[in-house]
Amino acid sequence: MNKKTFGNKLVASPYIVWSAIFIVVPLIIMLYFALTDSSGNFTLANLSGLGEYKKAFAISILYAAIATVITLLLAYPMAYFMSKLKISSQRMIFMIVMIPMWMNFLIRTYSWITILANTGLINTFLKNIGLRPLKLINTPGAVILGMVYDFIPYMILPIYSVMSKIDNSLLEASEDLGSNGFNKFKRVIFPLSRPGVISGITMVFVPSVSTFYISQKLGGNKTMLIGDTIEYFFNLGPDYYNIASAISLVLMVMILICLFIMNRFSDGEEGGVLM
């Protein structure tokens, strides 16, 4: 019956070949490197030796989780207030939030140095009004601030895009039925905005937990996150590719588990990853 659409299916074959070679095979090669030593013999030593990097994994997850929570707390009201503006103002604010997103995160992270450094703007200001300077740069707080700053647009925009689609008559109906502000939020606004929250959380958590630049620039060399550890080993040369692959593999599995858990929360609703 569908003879006519049959030809269409073949159109996807170049892509299917492409994704097999450049998405699936690389992951298999990474697995191969993780399970061999530098001369190519099978070993589990890379994976069993990962206990040494427990601290890096734990710190990465902790920092990324804190950054994600702060980002959500800041972004949620922003998205809500945005969706209540006039349509033309909504557009303008949307664009204003999006512009930093199209700028390189290296630049965005780097500009914080001038503000936070020991001789930076905040400390100069404090000194001028007669207060003691604060230790801002090279602290965990600075790393988390960097994550929040770099990734907050990825939280605001998906939440805003679901919020702006919430039908106002639903809110009016809930008011007519006697719900107060809190109930309206709990029973109408929050459930409807959940897909946006879920995709926002993933879009902030994944890059935060795997970052290797923010911590180097704002955290000094004290905090080695998991991304830093991977980059460090890759720069040491081919002999260290095996251990770096093993760490990457664990990072990937960890992220997949997080995504899986997040998907459970979204009640199997499809999409919402893209804005």
Partner: peptide
């Protein structure tokens, strides 16, 4: 979905 660093490294290994 994957972290950029994992995508980058797996392609480099390939």
């Amino acid at each position: 979905m994957n972290a950029d660093i994992v995508t980058g490294i797996s392609l480099m290994l390939l």
